[in-house]
Amino acid sequence: MKKDLLGIAELSSEEIYLILDTAEAMREIGQRPIKKVPTLRGKTVVNLFFEPSTRTRTSFEIAEKRLSADTLSIAVAASSVLKGETLVDTAMNIEAMSPDMIVVRHAASGACHLLSRICRSRIINAGDGMHEHPTQALLDAFTIREHKKRIDGLKVAIVGDLLHSRVLRSNVLLLTKLGAEVWVSGPRTLVPAGMERFGVRVSTSVEEAVADADVIMMLRIQQERMQGAFIPSLREYFTVFGMTAERVARAKPDAIIMHPGPMNRGVEIASEVADGPYSVILEQVANGVAVRMAVLYLLAGGPEGE
């Protein structure tokens, strides 16, 4: 493994499989009476979240504690960032206290790459702007592999707000690296230009995208990142792109439904689908802890070839 986990782009398929296999072993720890191993004893991990997060931050904190790391979370709402400190200054000040790893979420794409260049600590990207969210893609891959026993050759349809989604970018990179056939679908206004270059099929027809799919992955409509009229209304969006039982019926009978959360019920996904038998949305959350434990463990070792 390299020093930092900045994105799926920097990982080889061998490293991806190593993380997934390690996560298999980590998952068992969560089922023990004492859900803790001494592996990262004496290591300090700082969770630096410049954007709101419940799932990802909780998941990282639980993963760190299960590995016995000393961990603390900085929520920016109560930090010196509000007093005008820059990202680099905040990071350098945290660095001065010698943490071993910093988990970063930031609204700016590339924030983790910037910190990676100036920090001695290992940097783990927990979502940077509209760029990447590697641990989400890894836990999605873990969940897919658990249900389908493979990733290679599967048809995966990703539907929703493609433009603002870092989850999309990380998933497209990972799934194409491992040989899946990826279809993406969303309103024209929310499809980034040149998506085809990533080796995916683009369709504005959600029916076409999900036809015979093994996996349907929904993306949230990110209204907080929209400064303009990308869609006429949420209700119209649901009519044309919302994942309903009728649309799910076009996929393979054993297709699984995924969503990285937080869900907007009745916007991108119907409640009957989100709570339906093939929904693995809560399994994704459970698997997130094991995958993040694997990443923390693997990064804590010495970097390869240095």
Binding site: T22, A25, I29, L298, G301, G302, E304
Partner: peptide, 15 residues
């Protein structure tokens, strides 16, 4: 485990 300055982590398998 964490005493080696260099080298990748040993592979963890399932208990």
């Amino acid at each position: 485990l964490m005493r080696h300055a260099v080298g990748p982590q040993p592979v963890v398998r399932k208990t």
